[in-house]
Design a protein around this nucleic acid. Structure first.
Lengths: 331, 331
DNA sequence: CGAGCGAATGAAACCGGTTACATCAACCTA
DNA sequence: TAGGTTGATGTAACCGGTTTCATTCGCTCG
């Protein structure tokens, strides 16, 4: 159906080799010939087949991106940043949604790994060994995740992560300085690497500051998950909540409003990601600036760069209006 | 690097044709041979190259999806629905973000059209002629857009759209019955097909009901666009606002709250898409149920189905708490 | 004038699969 | 036993490009 390079070559009266060279901009073809070939190509509305080229050159011009949830704003802005950076180099994106499932992630990798130049895994739930195995077949960029053993860092495996340590430590200190004596942490998925970082940081900080720490689970780290998580929280006993991300915080905010609990007078809330446009949450959310756009830009840089990259971006707390002094009555 | 079918064939002591048949599950290969080939393939960790197969069979197993904005929840849930349905058939998705730009859309189509089996264009801003041209090269599914002339419906071009007519007419009637005498419509991008449907419907309904209609533009149909749009609205003179979508409505809500204008006592607001999880907006938003998930599912069906499809899904108004009686004082 | 050189082009192999067609053996039937 | 049929497998063409290597031609220089 579509015109091929052989048709162009035949029409222009040259060999396919010459046609290929002329179209590819090789200098080893005389001006008159080039023009003739280009003219014929234009007239025939010829577009080179990406497939044929991929097979011949061994590079596809596509990268695979696997996310736990395309619907989650954290990943969509990650994806948007990645897409912009790669698209500028005329690279395409094959996107896959693992739906937070291990098998889903495996299936996607299998489907993609013979047709992309590199693989970007966002918040992968895969065990270290499988990630390393994949990185032997093609370059892998691990975003928002880091392998346990720092020793084994295979070539072709980049690791981009946000260091939530500073931000979450500041969150605990901030709440401590406001007079709160305990924190409820509403967590993300159990296998989440960044979730573990957040838990660990809060655990250490609370121990240091002499605060109580309670951990509440979520089914999924989104708005609805946040709403549901509040059911497991003993409101009589809590004055401060830290959430896995802004979506969960938003859900908590919504459920608290329905329960008639005022924020921040009665309960303080801290989110994470700084992913909400100004004014979306009310009151404006105190949050940790774990920017997924930045994560996406760094992942793109790692994909484009040849060597393996290991990058950690520090975070910090942004204080807004969803945190306030601990109400004296409740201690 | 990766093992090829030739290596498998050699190792198993058969021709590549037999190897291909054994792996492909053809019945024309004796059991013993099949087992031997499959055993060798497993031992060598062989995965067939998607590229080689695509070139040989003429079908890639990928479909291209082009969206105006991957960050917009309307398109992400569209994408999620599409991804689920296509992924279940082991089809991959090449995603592109046109950033609401015509040239961006053209570039993406050019990059994709030789490496996908079909193209899904969501809210395409392209002129009819270019869409028709693309549909001559490969199957095209037009989502949330319809060609002007119903006469020219090329084979291989499907059109899936939500009929916002009923929903927006009901919105006008609803506001009319609450005593409002005028509506401000905060619009989407000027080239948007669905935007025109919404404008036209409101224009007709307002004429019929004897209401004033004012149209305010947005730079981009998102939260921030909604906030900015309020600057152009004369608040002394308006009691009811209809928004292009929920994101814009949310932005309006946020800006109104900052301006100290109460919803719905002072101003009523109607959104569109029903894209917000329950409780995200406060007060809960009266909206038109223009579900993008449904749109995605229908687009997937059109992509999978062989023939061209033309489908329209009706919408209706969902009344919640962001609309109320017109304040007597202001007329 | 002929050897030598470089520039432009062509022939053909190759990337990794699929598949139409040829081949060959075994079996069945007349 | 010869001829036909069937079933398993091999040979080779093909998909649409790129690239190595060989060829041809015109030119320069000794």
């Amino acid at each position: 159906m579509a015109t091929t390079i052989r048709q162009v070559a035949a029409e222009a009266g040259v060999s396919i080799a010459t046609a290929s060279r002329a179209l590819g901009g090789s200098s080893a073809v005389v001006e008159a010939t080039r023009e003739r070939v280009l003219g014929v190509a234009a007239a025939l509305n010829y577009t080179p087949s990406r497939l044929g080229r991929s097979l011949a050159t061994g590079s596809t011009g596509n990268v695979g991106v696997i996310l736990p949830d395309v619907t989650n704003p954290f990943y969509t802005s990650f994806l948007a940043a990645l897409e912009s950076a790669l698209g500028a180099r005329d690279l395409g994106i094959l996107v896959g949604d693992s739906h937070e499932s291990l098998d889903g992630e495996r299936a996607l990798i299998r489907r993609m790994d013979t047709q992309v130049d590199a693989l970007v895994l966002a918040s992968s739930r895969l065990p270290d060994a499988e990630i390393v195995a994949a990185s032997h077949r093609l370059p892998v960029v691990l975003a928002n995740r880091r392998l346990d053993a720092a020793a084994i860092a295979p070539a072709g495996l980049s690791q981009i992560a946000l260091d939530v340590g500073p931000g979450f430590a500041q969150a605990a200190e901030h709440l401590h300085s406001l007079g709160h004596t305990g924190i409820v942490y509403v967590d993300g998925p159990p296998q989440s690497w960044s979730g573990r970082q957040k838990r660990d940081t809060l655990t250490r900080a609370c121990a240091r500051l002499g605060m109580r720490l309670t951990i509440a689970p979520t089914v999924r780290p989104d708005f609805e998950g946040g709403r549901r998580a509040l059911e497991a929280v003993d409101l009589d006993d809590t004055t401060a909540i830290v959430a896995f991300n802004d979506q969960v915080a938003l859900g908590l905010l919504s459920a608290l409003r329905e329960a008639g609990v005022e924020v921040p007078t009665r309960v303080s809330i801290v989110g994470c990601d700084d992913s909400l446009p100004h004014g979306l949450a009310w009151p404006p959310l105190t949050t940790v600036d774990s920017s997924s756009r930045t994560l996406g830009e760094l992942a793109a840089a790692a994909t484009l760069g040849e060597g393996a990259l290991r990058n950690t971006v520090p975070t910090h707390l942004i204080v807004r209006d969803s945190t306030g002094a601990c109400p004296a009555a409740s201690v």
